[in-house]
Design a protein around this nucleic acid. Structure first.
Lengths: 229, 229
DNA sequence: CGTCTTCGGAGAATGTTATTCTCCATCGGG
DNA sequence: CCCGATGGAGAATAACATTCTCCGAAGACG
């Protein structure tokens, strides 16, 4: 149609305003409905995960729980992975906000970053007791097949750490060899993954699980000994 | 049978020597055959992975390629995951040996560890061009479902880094707050995971992929600035 | 040498999920 | 009141892993 052609030119302003508004109006209701449904699916999935204490569920379970249909599910999500990504993104965004807030309470930039790292580590632990699990294990499943999406889900958290790291840099507390955002990325990923890997209870030795202190020590100062700067 | 009962006592020395030898003889052939077959499966899987440049293959493909049967496969492996673990273990062991050898060439402990970390990072990159890919991505798939096995597959590599780290500690170059083996574990896991996560080509910004230098900087000195010790 | 047992090959059958498809009721607009 | 679109219910399909069944060959033993 002509409409399609105009859209293809990517100049929406060519479109008569009344037409846009008409489309908008007829679309709005549908959009709201869709948002509600998506929300229902997400909530159902959350519930199931919390109940089972595990992050592997079937699409069917989610559908049943949310009293909707498979068709509806695939109408709102491109596939299971989108649901997973949505959950992951939500959790990460919420957690990022909490961390930002908590870190902001610290005046010393380094102390703020420390708070952030500690919180991130603890909420990334695969402990089901946490009320806001980060579903870090999703990430590793999805990382292989949908790397770009996972990265964009990480974005809010990365932003928080980039801010914190930049502040640390501003007071001259960051290694000169590292750019803040890249340091933030390394820290964030290391912390999340290290938390994930503590899932593995060591059998040979005793207290394998890493502690928050160790992780903070490692991230801030690496393993090498150095005089206090 | 009586034999079973004796075995159940887990005192094999009660068993008459001649009997052990007899069993041994009749078992040996079977064992050799089994080892050969397992080897064939492993090689077929390796080939497929190298050809496809991807680590996801079906059991059927491996069976076809190795000119054997599904039944035979499941007779030698408890499931696909065991094949994966075997590949992962092999790759990791081989790589661990290479790293140990290369690091041993350095006299300075810290330099040895640096070599080790750089090699580990580079061989963990998901680049298919490497002739000995570490299959790090297997690890993340398996970590969730078979944590203990993954840990034990990590063991040889962990040993190498524990040795290197202990040497660093011996010359007083390790942070006093970290035990060598635990530092080694954190370093190893961080490096492997960070390499894995570079798979994600950043779209928003330019040179997202981490460099070996950055990773080494981070591992050795953390992000915080400090005077040279 | 013939039979018997066991081992393992081939590949059909099963089970589990994700994903798609088909049919049909409903509902809002003309 | 009819019509076309929307979306519900759930059957059909597809892709795998895993198991099962049948059957022939290779020794073991009389």
């Amino acid at each position: 149609m002509a409409q399609d052609q105009e859209l293809a030119l990517s100049t929406l302003s060519d479109e008569p305003a009344w037409k846009q508004r008409a489309v908008e109006r007829s679309t709005k209701a549908a959009r709201l409905r869709a948002e509600r449904k998506v929300q229902q699916f997400l909530e159902a999935a959350q519930e199931i995960i919390l109940e089972k204490g595990s992050t592997d569920f079937t699409v069917q379970e989610v559908v049943d729980r949310s009293h909707q249909s498979l068709r509806s599910f695939y109408q709102h999500f491109g596939g299971k992975h989108e649901l997973l990504l949505a959950l992951f993104e939500n959790a990460l965004r919420r957690s990022a906000d909490e961390i930002r807030a908590a870190a902001a309470a610290e005046v010393d930039p380094l102390a703020g970053l420390e708070v952030g790292i500690r919180m991130l580590f603890e909420s990334s632990l695969p402990d089901p007791s946490t009320r806001h699990p980060l579903f870090t294990d999703f990430a590793t499943q999805l990382l292989m097949t949908y790397p770009a999406e996972v990265r964009s889900a990480h974005e809010p958290m990365l932003s928080v750490f980039a801010e914190l790291m930049t502040r640390v840099d501003a007071v001259g507390q960051l290694r000169t060899s590292l750019r803040p955002r890249r340091a933030a990325a390394m820290v964030m990923q290391s912390v999340m993954f290290l938390a994930q890997s503590t899932a593995v209870a060591g059998e040979s030795e005793g207290a394998h699980p890493l502690t928050t202190d160790e992780v903070w020590d490692f991230c801030s100062g690496g393993f090498a000994r150095h005089a206090e700067g």
